[in-house]
């Protein structure tokens, strides 16, 4: 987390949105729009669609701010989960539509990604998740990152890693169990 993120009061901003204060929504936009768009773009890979989703996410933040409960987690985390789940719903619904079209078409674009386990910025290792990910075998670590960051389905991960679908499903399940064990 950067200094800027530490000093921005996400919780107060959501509370102001819940009271209908428009400048609060704008300040959240100025603070997070670029990073949120980065997350969405990596998930859906189409700039216009990613902007549509960011638009929808900000509307949902505006109308849903009053339902945010600080006891359930961080305000910044809530904002990201609103945006991510909009994108994931889109991806999974689309996947259902094009079943049978073959995952190859979906994977036409090579991600401008992080080399797994190598290029990750050292500061990120401060986060416990990275320490725990590092304890997983590389293929299993890749499953988690491709799913969370790239929005890949089991089938897409299997295709990407050249592993059988059943194996990938088991890797995902076991990696999540291991992460839970490691992170508490």
């Amino acid at each position: 987390m950067t200094q800027l993120e530490r000093t921005f009061d996400y919780e107060a901003t959501l509370a102001a949105c819940a009271r209908g204060e428009r400048p609060a929504l704008q300040s959240l936009y100025q603070q997070e729009a670029a990073r949120l768009l980065g997350v969405l773009l990596r998930l859906v890979r189409e700039p216009a669609l990613a902007e549509d989703l960011l638009h929808d996410a900000f509307l949902r933040i505006w109308t849903g701010a009053s339902s945010f409960d600080p006891a359930r987690g961080s305000a910044r985390g809530w904002v990201y989960s609103v945006a991510r789940h909009l994108a994931l719903n889109h991806l999974r619904n689309r996947h259902r539509e094009i079943q049978g079209a073959g995952v190859e078409e979906l994977l036409g674009v090579e991600e401008a990604g992080v080399a797994l386990g190598e290029g990750i910025d050292v500061t990120l290792h401060a986060a416990r998740i990275h320490l725990c990910l590092d304890q997983l075998p590389p293929a299993r670590r890749a499953c988690i990152v491709h799913a969370y960051v790239d929005g890949f389905s089991h089938a897409e991960i299997a295709h990407k890693l050249g592993a059988p679908l059943g194996t990938v499903k088991a890797w995902v399940k076991r990696s999540l169990a291991a992460l839970r064990e490691c992170m508490g």
């Binding site: 729009a33 997350v39 902007e51 961080s74 985390g77 990750i120 990120l124 986060a127």
Partner: peptide, 17 residues
């Protein structure tokens, strides 16, 4: 959500239009 959220840092920011 709390456990996995730091993974969003693996993406690069992209300025909206």
């Amino acid at each position: 959500e709390e456990r996995l959220q730091p993974l969003t840092e693996l993406t690069s920011p992209h300025a909206p239009s």
